[in-house]
Simulated scan of single mutants.
Amino acid sequence: MVLQLTVADVMTQPVLSVTPDTPLQQAVQLISDHHISGLPVVDDTGALIGELSEQDLMVRESGVDAGPYVMLLDSVIYLRNPLNWDKQVHQVLGTTVKELMRKDAHTCSLDLGLPRAASLLHDRGTQRLFVLDSDAKPVGVITRGDVVRALASHQGG
């Protein structure tokens, strides 16, 4: 029965992660190669400190919602040298994970019930929850797709 399942029963594991100093290109390659929408960012001890998502990368590439500071820099760079504008904007926006990561990763514990996890995914408007152990280290990830697959496999039971 789905109501009795926990996050630990359906999460994807092991979870891939990056550090703040991981080159952005390497993180992009991981996301692309593994067909995932985001990565947890961990410190030297393996504890979660943030998240890098496809959305963060899209903002970087499109410049949308980049903020007034970046928009001002963008204008200055363009006026200074319009021929190198694209290259210089990308340098300003960063080349490592720490320059694009968000520190507000959505998380849950291993023993969280699946219905509550589904509710959190919906209410927070996120694609994933990183599942943390008691040391705040990511041990898995549960996505909207994981919830739907669990519902489909447990219908009627």
Results as ranks from 00 to 15, higher is better:
M1F: 04
V2D: 05
L3T: 09
D9M: 01
D9A: 03
D9C: 06
M11V: 08
M11L: 15
P14N: 13
L16N: 08
D21R: 12
T22M: 02
T22Q: 01
P23T: 09
L24N: 04
A27P: 03
A27Q: 01
S32T: 12
S32F: 12
I36N: 03
L39K: 05
V41N: 00
V42M: 02
D43K: 06
D44M: 05
D44V: 07
G46T: 03
G46R: 03
G46N: 01
A47I: 04
I49P: 00
L52M: 02
S53G: 00
Q55F: 07
D56H: 01
L57F: 02
V59L: 07
R60I: 06
R60V: 05
E61N: 03
S62P: 00
S62T: 07
G63Y: 02
D65Y: 08
D65C: 01
D65H: 05
P68Y: 12
Y69I: 11
M71P: 10
M71V: 08
D74P: 13
V76F: 14
I77K: 06
L79P: 13
R80K: 11
P82Q: 13
L83K: 15
N84T: 14
H90Q: 07
H90E: 08
V92M: 14
L93K: 09
T95E: 08
T95H: 12
T96A: 12
E99I: 12
E99P: 00
L100M: 02
K103G: 07
D104Q: 03
H106F: 06
H106S: 08
H106P: 02
T107N: 13
D111P: 06
G113I: 11
L114M: 04
P115Q: 08
P115V: 01
P115H: 15
R116K: 14
R116C: 09
S119Y: 13
G125D: 09
Q127I: 12
F130T: 01
D133C: 04
D135E: 10
A136C: 11
P138Y: 01
V139E: 06
G140H: 05
G140E: 03
V141T: 08
T143G: 07
T143M: 06
R149L: 04
A150H: 07
S153L: 15
H154T: 14
H154Y: 02
Q155H: 13
G157L: 14
